[in-house]
Design a protein around this nucleic acid. Structure first.
Lengths: 204, 204
DNA sequence: GTTTTTACTAAACACTGTTTATTATATTTA
DNA sequence: TAAATATAATAAACAGTGTTTAGTAAAAAC
């Protein structure tokens, strides 16, 4: 029954083809402007074919979403070599911010876009997300354990830290920082300083 | 030439009618799910008529956007009676957050939605936005002048403070707080504590 | 009373995500 | 090998979107 396995492989290949095309189009033009017909044109199949491999557009969204979390998680964990946890925390913040500026469309998809909840709400699926957030919690836990930062509830500090950097990044990405009377390069520089300042302020 | 004036009045009335209907529909179903045809049905005119009063959907978006900023600005300034600027800052943060939770669709429109830049980028139009943000800057300036908070660049602290609360609020509104293993009411409570904790940490 | 301007709309255009009925091909069975 | 069945792909349609165009009634100006 090698045919069944080949078919299974071909099915997965087709899914990969669709995801690759969708990701590329999405990173070039953004999610909203990537239509099923665009993807179909790109892979030279009819639009209806895509629905043989994915339930709907949300399911494609979700796979890209999952991939993005794997990428971010990998980047964040590259800071594991930094021994001092508060310095590591600082590096994590900078890495997170850099990821957002390098891949604004990924960031949008991950943390800003109104998400297809049916897919995301299930906790299983958030695994890689929980993983990245879990890494932040662990690092902050280490800072607290070693009394390097002022004592405070671990979860509170984790949410606060994430929210702080997300706030800076998302206001920038969604172009609300334009009310600040500064040039773009100056603003980006200030956002960097803001993260630095925030982490320094946590110190015990 | 009273006819011309009456016509002008009628034109403005029609614009108001459209905006009122659009706002009501938008607050009920969200922006994306409010179509020009929905508005047209509601006011009992043809869709094409709306284009005689507004250039496009973005222009309707922008008027609602402007109105929302007037509302928020008014709410924030109600805290002016609080004399201690750092306590006022705390109150402003809580008011901002309450506004977001009470009017998530307004908040979305104001600070999260991908905005029609053509309208918003022009600084004139951001007037009320600048006004609300200006009020934050002024309050923080007062805190700095009176040496109630640790010395730091005024603009940096203003952006940081805004970003912090925006981060908390926007992650909640766009349902990313679901990775935190807590119930909704607990999360909301924690967000409140986070703001309190943040302001306390600023103290000199 | 005739002309001109204004207010409005039906219908169309070019899109969107998605579904259905149909066809051609590949696989299985007799 | 030939007929029956299962699979893969698609053309066409459905219901929706924002927006434009051409045409019609009513109001205002002359």
């Amino acid at each position: 029954m090698a045919i069944k396995e080949r078919k299974e492989r071909e099915k997965q290949d087709m899914r990969n083809l669709i995801i690759e095309s969708a990701t590329q189009l999405f990173l070039k033009h953004g999610y909203d402007k990537t239509s099923i017909r665009n993807i179909a044109d790109d892979i030279e199949y009819s639009p209806a074919t895509i629905y043989l491999y994915f339930k709907d557009k949300d399911e494609i969204f979700y796979v890209i979403h999952e991939n993005a979390f794997v990428i971010l998680d990998g980047l964040l964990r590259k800071n594991q070599s930094i021994e001092n946890p508060i310095e590591r925390l600082h590096a994590i913040g900078k890495t997170y911010m850099q990821f957002a500026f390098d891949n604004p469309d990924y960031y949008d998809l991950m943390f800003i876009m109104r998400a297809p909840l049916s897919q995301i709400k299930s906790e299983e699926q958030w695994k890689s997300g929980e993983c990245a957030f879990g890494y932040l919690i662990d690092t902050i836990g280490e800072c607290l354990d070693k009394k390097l930062v002022k004592p405070v509830d671990k979860m509170l500090l984790s949410i606060s830290t994430w929210s702080f950097v997300h706030g800076l990044v998302s206001l920038y990405i969604r172009e609300r920082m334009c009310i600040v009377p500064m040039e773009d390069s100056q603003i980006k520089q200030m956002l960097d300083v803001a993260v630095e300042n925030y982490v320094e302020n946590l110190r015990a």
